[in-house]
Design a protein around this nucleic acid. Structure first.
Lengths: 149, 149
DNA sequence: AAATAATCCTACATATATACTATGAATTAA
DNA sequence: TTAATTCATAGTATATATGTAGGATTATTT
């Protein structure tokens, strides 16, 4: 399953903000950009989407930065994905049902609707807090990988 | 989940060939093109992929056409998808693990690997014969939709 | 043998999406 | 007032998607 770098970076950035600010305060786009090795300007575009989606709020000015606008266990992956790219969890063929014979419609319900249904239910029960929890558990095992934050 | 029209048409075309030839014989690209309301030339390109994937064989010349090269219950959706677009069931980020910190790697295994895993197991147990069976069951109920083939 | 009907193969055109880069305005704290 | 930061938009190069088009190849039919 291919996913755009915007979506990848969007989720990772949100997780980064959550982890970096869990003891209060804010984190700047410059910090995150360095950690994730992307240009700050590009990252700001992605954070724009996160803010418009209602996941983070930005505090302007010196000593400003970003924080979550909701607790991480109230942010569902389905919401994040929809905000970053509304095609991922959407119906595969919308308004396409009238074309051709109905083998198309049948394949749609037998295959694509079921795949979409699973992706939705999985991402509707998975929260940002779950992602962070799993990340920290992996960090606790140094033989697995290193923890940078 | 957005999918290219090539993938959609590829699966539908394969199902069409299976249904149209289940009593023997062949079906031409012209027939399928009319039924699915696409240009014959475009359809031929898509059938090319199906042939290279080993799902159909073409018989040239007058009275030629296409047939399945294997029984429909031995053709798995995972194979079809891989032949038509090898990104759908592939790992979301291949060779991408070295970039940035390992929040990326962790999100990858917590989210994307699981989604890919489900899509694979579902499509690895679903066959073309299953799709056709469901299609015919729907056709048997005229209140649901009409059956054209 | 010639005509016909079909698959097979490749090149090209156009539109859209992606992945950035770049520029600067607006806002706040020191 | 200066510096630091978010906020917003414009531009651009590349890749991908969605076809169109032309014709070569092969087999059947007459």
């Amino acid at each position: 399953m291919k996913v755009s770098t915007r979506v990848e970076l969007g989720i990772v950035t949100l997780a980064d903000i959550a982890v970096s600010t869990e003891n209060g305060g804010t984190v700047s786009s410059a910090e995150i950009a360095e950690r994730q090795r992307v240009s700050q300007k590009y990252l700001e575009q992605i954070i724009l989407g996160l803010r418009q989606g209602g996941f983070v709020k930005g505090l302007k000015g010196s000593r400003g930065g970003y924080q979550l606008s909701r607790p991480a266990d109230k942010i569902y992956l389905s919401e994040i994905l929809n905000a970053l790219d509304n095609t991922i969890l959407s119906d595969t063929f919308e308004g396409d049902e009238a074309q051709g014979d109905d083998i198309r419609a049948s394949v749609n319900t037998s295959l694509w609707d079921k795949l979409n249904g699973y992706m939705r239910s999985f991402t509707q029960q998975l929260t940002l807090a779950d992602l962070i929890k799993e990340y920290k558990e992996r960090c606790a095992d140094p033989s697995d990988m290193m923890c940078f934050i």
